[in-house]
Amino acid sequence: MTSDTVTRPRRVKTRMRPAQRRTAVKTWANTAAIAVVALVFTFPFIWMFFTALKPEDEVFSSSPTFVGSEVRWQNFSDAWTLVPFGRFIFNGFFVSILGALLSIIVAVLSAYAFSRLRFKFRDRLFLLYVLTLVLPQEVLVVPLFIMMNKLGLVDTYAALIVPFAFTAFGTFLMRQFFLTIPLEYEEAALIDGASRFRTLWSVLLPQLTAPLSVLAVFSFIGYYNSYLWPLIVINSQDLATVPLGLSMFTGERGTQWSLMMAAATLAVIPSLIIVALLQRQLIKGVALGGFGGR
């Protein structure tokens, strides 16, 4: 079809309009097709939400419908009060924000050293960092747990936040970006008598807001969704993060599927908000770093 227009340029003008229309129709048809696929794809979430609104005895039905005999919004408030869900969400945000902050500070400082300073063993040390990128975190949970236990940190926020703020990924990502920034700016600043820290803070970082926000968002999500480590290191409900709280809920309310789905919906909502607000950073982050999937 495109070759038509190319090989017979003279007739372009007259044939353009139907062709254009055809293209438009095709585009819309294509869009409709992907919309259907997307709908099927997101169906589990849709079903989750509608199940959350059903009376318990209608969750399993041989002729399933979206809306049950009544719409029970109170399932949400029941789920919220049966377990301290507000507490879980607070813990989730508290841990994730502090964790993301710590990760960023560590990454920026280390990346600065690795990209701007000369010191012995720099490249070898960096290689060591890079090697740990492929290390599955699960290999470390037993010794980390024993360490936390010996330090008396089991069942504390510190145990949730600190051990995973030092992964090489942040340092690696920030270093890659530091390397893209020409040295001239900093040299000028350094010659003017600014300290290194000042140069880093007011010359380098302002140019790196995009990667910084990417790192922040991904650290946040990593902490927020983390499950295995909190499962191991947290004993009390008061310190549970959202996934752990949700699993506690399932332990106690194994059959109350409508309440469980209400709780799951509540757990999913903050993530949906994050996607809605920060989709650009997310896409960029995945495209550049691609690490969040781990």
Binding site: A38, F41, T42, P44, F45, W47, M48, T51, I221, Y224, N225, Y227, V242, P243, L246, S247, T250, M260, M261, A264, T265, A267, V268, S271, L272, I274, V275, Q279, L282, I283, V286, G292, G293
Partner: peptide, 17 residues
């Protein structure tokens, strides 16, 4: 973004549904 959604929602919730 739609296809990306489940990747950032808590896996525990996803697995439950």
């Amino acid at each position: 973004v739609i296809f990306f959604l489940p990747a950032i929602t808590p896996m525990v919730a996803n697995a439950l549904i």
